[in-house]
């Protein structure tokens, strides 16, 4: 119990003193996971829409792949992204192994299946009669798409929240492709792992409090956005 108390005190001390190292780690975490989520939306929204609305052979098979992808362990993603980004790998010439950019790529791979699978499911849940009716109004393709997107705005935001939640909490991929380099590619989760292995449990607890607060704040903002639009 005393340890928990110590950790909480340490967390407040870090917040109040504005510890530059923890502050930097928190900002980097936000930057990396935010960019990765944004990337996954850019990739996932069109792909999810396509799978959700178009009939084509192999659609179910592809959807099952993305559904499985939601459970893909980050450490597996980390391994595969490493193999591609290593100097000896096919993208070694990019020279981005052990950088924050490498973490963004790995996290985008982790988040994309969430956006794709949940977007597709949301589109499929829309009432076919409604779709027919919208069509009957003589909408253009783009108008049709926007009207349907309006229908699924709640599950869509849920998809974004799920994707962001997956990447901000993962440690395996960040450790593997980022290397946990001090002041450069160290994010909150990898910093926590390091402090645990150093035996600094109080610092580890305070970092975990930082991480939870950060995840909660962003998720709350997204949820408020989601709910604000409801029922109007």
């Amino acid at each position: 119990m005393e340890l928990i108390w110590q950790g909480i005190k340490e967390a407040f001390r870090l917040i109040i003193n504005g510890d530059p190292e923890v502050f930097g780690i928190t900002l980097l975490t936000l930057k990396v996971s935010g960019t990765a989520t944004l990337l996954s939306i850019i990739i996932g929204l069109p792909v999810g829409t396509l799978i959700g609305l178009k009939e084509f052979p192999g659609r179910r098979f592809i959807l099952s792949i993305f559904n499985t992808g939601m459970g893909l362990p980050p450490v597996v993603v980390g391994l595969w992204v490493s193999i591609f980004l290593w100097r000896s790998g096919p993208f070694g010439f990019l020279n981005i192994m052990y950088t924050p950019e490498a973490i963004i790529i790995a996290q985008a791979v982790i988040a994309s299946p969430f956006i794709i699978a949940l977007t597709a499911a949301a589109f499929q849940q829309t009432n076919p009669k409604l779709r027919l009716q919208i069509r009957a109004l003589g909408t253009t393709r783009l108008q049709y798409l926007f009207l349907l997107l309006n229908e699924i705005r709640l599950p869509l935001m849920a998809a974004i929240i799920a994707g962001f939640g997956a990447v901000i909490s993962e440690v395996g991929a960040s450790m593997a492709v980022g290397g946990n380099i001090k002041g450069y590619s160290r994010v909150l989760t990898t910093a926590t792992v390091l402090e645990v292995s150093k035996g600094n449990f109080d610092v580890a607890i305070s970092l975990s409090i930082f991480l939870s607060l950060l995840a909660f704040t962003i998720t709350m903002l997204l949820t408020m956005l989601q709910q604000k639009q409801q029922g109007g």
Binding site: L28, L38, L225
Partner: peptide
């Protein structure tokens, strides 16, 4: 409203990143 929701969420994320 569609534009708003999507636009807002993207805007929020972008702002967060720019801030960071």
């Amino acid at each position: 409203r569609v534009h708003l929701t999507l636009f807002n969420s993207l805007l929020l994320l972008t702002l967060v990143i720019i801030f960071a």
